[in-house]
Simulated assay, not measured.
Amino acid sequence: MPSIKTMILAATALAAMSGLAQAQQSDADKTWTEVRIGTEGAYPPFNFLDASGKLSGFDVDIAQALCDQMKVTCTFVAQDWDGIIPALQNERFDAIIASMSITPEREKQVLFTNKYYNTAGAMAVPKDSPLTDVSDASLKGKTIGAQGSTTHAQAAETFYPDADVKIYPTAEEYKLDVANGRLDAVMDDIVVLSQWLESPDGACCKLLGTMKPDEAIYGKGAGIALRQGNEKLKTMFNEAIVAIRANGVYKTVQDKYFKFDVYGK
């Protein structure tokens, strides 16, 4: 006969599975008039808090454009990156639009739409760095910073096994450390690094190079993450992405932040 503790654990697991199944069922049947969007708010220029404390950036403006196209009301929720997928699964919001790369590992946890942009990973170093390329041999014994739970952190650990990889909760923290001489290099999206390097805060550093486009790590671009089983909302978002690409709204939003097409091939 199983112990009381075993029976309690089994009942808890069953309740969790039942709750997830009910959420998936309600998502599938729901008529969407309002969509709650989760984003980080600490990853400029894609998502950040402006001077008034309002969520802003490319992710936020694209989300609003998609909601307008779908004729639904958008509300935005700021969420720390490390807890963003659990918060989606616990129904704090309905979709993540936060520059989340579509990777095989994440596809086990969430349902992704098609990409809404796709840019390369890159590395930046201090301006006086002796490093001349992004090879594993060059970075041997060096200290590399990256934001935790990102494809860039995974790439750092995969591409540079002989380097010391330091993980940070936010991009702002690794930027401070490399500016203050505590890191030899940092890795992130090329757009994030390029815009930082053009700002006064990024005057310390320069772009060293881009990463090889390894789809097993970097995925298929940034997509919108939904709860598993929410095929209805996925279809709505996918159709809206196609529509705003065709009607020029995507380009209008893109041109506000970038000088090139971030959608990619």
Rank of each mutant, 00 (worst) to 15 (best):
248 G>P: 09
94 D>N: 12
241 I>E: 12
83 G>W: 08
159 F>W: 10
262 V>E: 01
108 K>Y: 07
138 S>C: 06
160 Y>W: 10
71 K>C: 07
76 F>V: 00
50 D>Q: 05
171 A>Y: 07
83 G>Q: 13
61 D>C: 02
242 V>F: 04
137 A>T: 12
171 A>V: 03
66 L>M: 15
257 Y>P: 02
34 E>C: 02
115 K>H: 13
82 D>E: 14
189 D>C: 12
183 L>V: 05
63 A>C: 08
25 Q>C: 01
120 A>I: 03
86 P>N: 07
161 P>F: 04
257 Y>G: 08
208 L>W: 06
75 T>L: 08
215 E>M: 10
238 N>S: 09
182 R>V: 04
148 G>I: 15
5 K>D: 10
32 W>T: 11
110 V>L: 11
87 A>R: 05
242 V>Q: 15
240 A>P: 00
88 L>M: 11
19 G>M: 13
137 A>H: 07
203 A>W: 05
2 P>L: 05
40 E>T: 12
241 I>M: 14
22 Q>V: 11
83 G>I: 14
246 A>M: 10
45 P>N: 06
79 Q>L: 12
132 T>Q: 10
211 M>S: 10
205 C>T: 07
231 E>D: 15
264 G>A: 04
125 V>M: 04
45 P>A: 06
53 G>S: 09
253 V>C: 09
38 G>H: 00
90 N>Y: 04
121 G>H: 08
139 L>I: 02
34 E>I: 02
111 L>G: 11
257 Y>R: 08
140 K>C: 11
208 L>D: 00
220 K>L: 04
210 T>E: 11
218 Y>S: 14
174 Y>C: 02
28 A>R: 14
30 K>W: 03
174 Y>G: 03
110 V>R: 00
5 K>P: 00
114 N>D: 15
82 D>S: 15
142 K>C: 03
1 M>E: 10
7 M>S: 06
265 K>G: 14
94 D>L: 02
16 A>V: 13
88 L>I: 13
229 G>H: 06
173 E>R: 12
212 K>I: 02
239 E>H: 04
86 P>L: 04
72 V>L: 09
150 T>V: 11
9 L>H: 01
149 S>F: 15
198 E>G: 05
54 K>E: 13
160 Y>C: 11
213 P>D: 12
222 A>V: 02
240 A>H: 04
